[in-house]
Amino acid sequence: MIVTRTSYNTVPPKVVYSLTPYGSRLHQFLVEMTKLGEELAPHLAKAGAPIEFDYHYQEMIHH
């Protein structure tokens, strides 16, 4: 398993996804993919694709 999902019984609902120890081996790859996505987002948005990020790769690096 690469990602775990923890669901909290709250209002509003809260769900947290995190990398497993095995998944953490992919951390740097995921950071690089996120950086690429952020770089491409303006070009995709100009083409009409809806783009939204809830995080930035700088935050991922510190986890």
Results as ranks from 00 to 15, higher is better:
25 R>Q: 15
11 V>N: 08
21 P>M: 05
61 I>R: 08
33 M>N: 06
8 Y>M: 13
26 L>F: 13
40 L>G: 01
22 Y>E: 07
6 T>Y: 09
29 F>T: 09
23 G>I: 02
25 R>E: 12
14 K>Q: 15
51 I>R: 01
42 P>T: 03
63 H>K: 11
27 H>K: 14
16 V>T: 09
8 Y>P: 00
25 R>K: 11
9 N>M: 10
26 L>R: 05
61 I>T: 08
2 I>G: 03
58 Q>N: 12
32 E>G: 05
19 L>P: 00
19 L>A: 04
15 V>T: 13
3 V>R: 12
3 V>N: 07
25 R>F: 03
60 M>N: 02
23 G>Q: 03
50 P>E: 12
22 Y>D: 08
24 S>W: 10
44 L>Y: 13
6 T>H: 12
23 G>C: 02
59 E>H: 08
47 A>P: 00
2 I>W: 05
24 S>V: 05
16 V>R: 10
52 E>Q: 11
61 I>C: 01
56 H>W: 06
11 V>A: 15
56 H>T: 12
1 M>Q: 09
32 E>F: 01
28 Q>N: 15
9 N>K: 09
47 A>D: 05
11 V>M: 15
52 E>K: 11
7 S>K: 12
22 Y>V: 07
34 T>F: 07
48 G>Y: 04
46 K>M: 13
37 G>A: 11
59 E>Q: 11
60 M>P: 00
37 G>V: 02
2 I>A: 06
48 G>P: 00
54 D>A: 14
55 Y>M: 11
12 P>R: 01
14 K>N: 07
22 Y>I: 13
55 Y>W: 11
36 L>F: 07
7 S>H: 09
1 M>K: 12
55 Y>A: 07
42 P>G: 01
27 H>R: 13
17 Y>Q: 00
57 Y>I: 02
30 L>C: 06
26 L>A: 09
41 A>R: 02
5 R>T: 12
7 S>V: 15
24 S>E: 13
56 H>D: 13
50 P>Y: 06
43 H>W: 06
38 E>V: 09
53 F>W: 14
54 D>P: 04
21 P>Q: 09
13 P>H: 08
17 Y>E: 04
35 K>M: 05
31 V>A: 02
19 L>Y: 03
14 K>P: 00
48 G>A: 03
27 H>Y: 06
43 H>C: 01
8 Y>N: 08
39 E>C: 01
4 T>A: 13
12 P>A: 08
61 I>W: 02
5 R>K: 10
15 V>W: 02
13 P>F: 04
52 E>Y: 10
14 K>A: 12
4 T>G: 06
48 G>K: 04
29 F>W: 15
57 Y>V: 01
33 M>R: 07
25 R>W: 03
39 E>H: 06
4 T>D: 15
